[in-house]
């Protein structure tokens, strides 16, 4: 792009905030009662975490992967792409993340999730639970309708944040698996910031916590 320095973030925002939130409203209505299933799967992750063992870890990775794949298809490709041509690339990124989770966590069993013992694990569980329970409430608390709520496994932000939290509960840091969720939180934060949404910082800040802990764990 020529003269790229003359562009602002707002030059890349293709839609009005109203259109963006309406997308979630129509999506939620279309997929009901998938929300209940998604919440149940989120709770299942916590149960599996406390059960422990190789099978449980594979189960957690499989649920996370399913969430990424669902969001890639049902949200990015089927909905978001109607108002944002970049969503096709987002869908590809989300599908790649699903494959990485399946490859690393399910097929190779390379992720061992453990109930939190130290501080990193507690932060990870906190971030995961926040994405599962609190993040969907932020919109309604800010005065947006309940019907716009963004849920883990169905909407990109809580899915990315929950995954980052869950990855902190794994026995070792998998940088490759952190990359796409982190990138998404940055993209989403920038989008919401450009839209003037007061909660734009939520996903980036929640993403910063896992990355900080991951770096600290390594040192």
């Amino acid at each position: 792009m020529s003269e790229w320095w003359t562009y602002r973030l707002s030059d890349f925002l293709l839609f009005a905030p109203r259109t963006y939130y309406r997308l979630f409203e129509l999506y939620n209505a279309d997929i009901w009662p998938a929300q209940i299933a998604a919440l149940a799967l989120g709770v299942a992750i916590v149960v599996l975490l406390y059960r422990g063992g190789a099978g449980a870890s594979r189960g957690i990775a499989a649920i996370l992967a399913a969430g990424w794949l669902w969001v890639a298809w049902a949200f990015h490709l089927e909905r978001y792409a109607t108002i944002n041509w970049a969503a096709v690339y987002f869908a590809a990124g989300f599908a790649v993340q699903a494959l990485l989770l399946v490859w690393t966590g399910v097929l190779r069993g390379g992720l061992r999730f453990q109930a939190p013992s130290g501080i990193p694990g507690r932060i990870g569980l906190g971030v995961f639970l926040f994405a599962l329970v609190m993040q969907p409430l932020i919109g309604p608390l800010l005065g947006r309708a309940w019907t716009h709520a963004e849920l883990f496994g169905l909407a990109p932000d809580p899915t990315a944040v929950a995954t980052l939290g869950a990855l902190l509960l794994a026995n070792r840091t998998r940088w490759l698996l952190l990359a796409i969720p982190l990138l998404w939180c940055a993209i989403s934060g920038a989008t919401l910031w450009t839209m003037g949404a007061p909660d734009w910082f939520v996903s980036p800040v929640l993403a910063a916590a896992p990355i900080g802990v991951a770096l600290w764990k390594r040192s």
């Binding site: 839609f15 009005a16 259109t19 997308l23 129509l26």
Partner: peptide
Amino acid sequence: WITFNVGEDPAA
């Protein structure tokens, strides 16, 4: 630009 990018929302 922006104003008419309302996707498939029938009402919009």
